[in-house]
Design a protein around this nucleic acid. Structure first.
Length: 112
DNA sequence: CTCATGACTTTTT
DNA sequence: AAAAAAGCCATGA
């Protein structure tokens, strides 16, 4: 069964447990590619934040990254709020204790 | 098909 | 430590 790259990005996003985060690079790697930037692009068209909690996807550096196309401003504040509501602290645009909150995908998956 | 673009990442200043 | 440059690749025009 072939799923599009974007579709797989969304499905992996849905796997991240509440209170944990993953990164754009992790998702790309889990799909067997290095298309980190394309991951962000795929999330930009997220059809449902309920189904796909894309606020749990952050940068490899532990910084927040973007939300709904915005890299700063109100959208990012919303992302921060959602994370803190789940117990992930954010200070100065960064995940506090990033290593402990970092969810790792168990096995690589391929979409092709 | 080619080309530019971006919710990125890593290396180099 | 902070900023810039270079590298990455799926997607849409």
């Amino acid at each position: 069964m072939h799923r599009s790259f974007s579709q797989n990005v969304l499905e992996l996003t849905a796997r991240v447990p509440k209170g944990m985060v993953t990164t754009y690079a992790d998702i790309a790697r889990a799909l067997g590619t290095g298309a980190y930037r394309a991951v962000g692009r795929a999330l930009q068209t997220n059809p449902s934040t309920k189904t796909y909690p894309c606020h749990r996807v952050v940068k490899s550096t532990g910084e927040l990254g973007g939300y709904f196309g915005e890299t700063s401003g109100p959208a990012i504040l919303a992302k921060k709020s959602l994370l803190e509501k789940e117990g992930v602290q954010v200070t100065d645009n960064r995940i506090v204790n990033f290593a402990e909150k970092h969810f790792r995908f168990s096995k690589p998956r391929f979409y092709k």
